[in-house]
């Protein structure tokens, strides 16, 4: 497991691509937060909304692409087959690859948030606990999408396919999902609105992290009075735990599937 982890970490952190993303993220975050006024709150404001949206848009995209590309590349170049000959279980292999990639992503996200914070400090911004919350949830989001990307990487047969599937999944989760839900909502009776919203949050990690961040900031009032009871619950300790639980499930399930894929592939080979 350790070998696989180290291997993956080493490969990814040396990728220029990932480093350029880190720099890009830093610049964008600094511009967004710096230009949206100097008010700093622990609640929902333009700067927090902008930073949150930046994370929600970019992190899934980059994570999906890097994760799936590395794996499908390994597969295409036959290095995965080599790794599989090592005397380790597939579970350990998957775990190692996951942790290795996760560490590299964590490094890049830390770099982005750290850099943006320093820039913001230099132009005289104030501290808000939102930064920490946002950092934590962004890392979590990366963790979830990394798991999904590993599944994609193993499922697809080459790099091109991996890019295509990754982009499709990203667009669905980030861009189209909300319109899809709103479309369904407009067709079902009013009594279904609440359960459907609840389901829609569980079914999409991007939504999960968005709603989680807002409720953790206790700014759930922006969801409107229709969701009053639900928001109260979501802002409570129980609600936050459930969010965490769902996030963990989102990380574990794709990995289990990935493991299953490798095992099947092994047997076929």
């Amino acid at each position: 497991m350790k070998t696989a982890m180290k291997y993956q970490w080493m490969m990814m952190i040396r990728s220029k691509w990932l480093i350029s993303f880190g720099v890009l993220f830093t610049i964008l975050a600094a511009i967004l937060v710096g230009s949206s006024g100097n008010e700093s709150f622990s609640g929902f404001a333009r700067s927090t909304a902008a930073l949150l949206n930046l994370s929600l848009l970019l992190i899934p995209l980059v994570t999906l692409l890097t994760g799936s590309l590395f794996l499908s590349g390994e597969k295409e170049d036959g290095r995965l087959a080599l790794l599989l000959t090592y005397p380790i279980s597939t579970r350990a292999l998957i775990g190692g690859l996951y942790i290795g990639s996760f560490l590299s992503l964590l490094t890049v996200i830390s770099f982005g948030y750290g850099g943006a914070s320093i820039v913001l400090f230099l132009i005289g911004g104030g501290w808000s606990s939102f930064f920490f919350l946002s950092f934590f949830l962004t890392v979590l989001l990366a963790g979830i999408f990394l798991a999904i990307s590993m599944f994609i990487g193993l499922y697809t047969s080459n790099r091109l396919q991996a890019i295509g599937v990754s982009l499709l999944i990203w667009a669905f989760f980030v861009l189209f999902y909300e319109f899809f839900i709103v479309g369904i909502l407009s067709m079902v009776p009013k009594g279904w609105v609440l359960p459907l919203f609840a389901l829609s949050i569980i079914m999409n990690p991007v939504e999960l992290v968005r709603v989680w961040t807002i409720t953790a900031m206790k700014s759930g009032t922006i969801f409107g009075p229709q969701l009053y009871e639900w928001t109260k619950w979501a802002e409570s300790m129980n609600g936050q735990f459930v969010f965490f639980g769902v996030a963990c499930i989102w990380m574990v399930i794709p990995l289990i599937f990935a493991n299953f894929l490798i095992k099947r592939g092994n047997r076929d080979a």
């Binding site: 040396r14 750290g114 914070s117 400090f121 501290w127």
Partner: peptide, 23 residues
């Protein structure tokens, strides 16, 4: 100007740079 922000930023930055080096 908040030193909390500076501390947060420098911890993350140091961590990431160390991770890069190590990697």
């Amino acid at each position: 100007r908040s030193w909390g922000l500076f501390a947060f930023g420098s911890i993350l930055l140091t961590f990431s740079l160390w991770m890069f080096q190590y990697g």
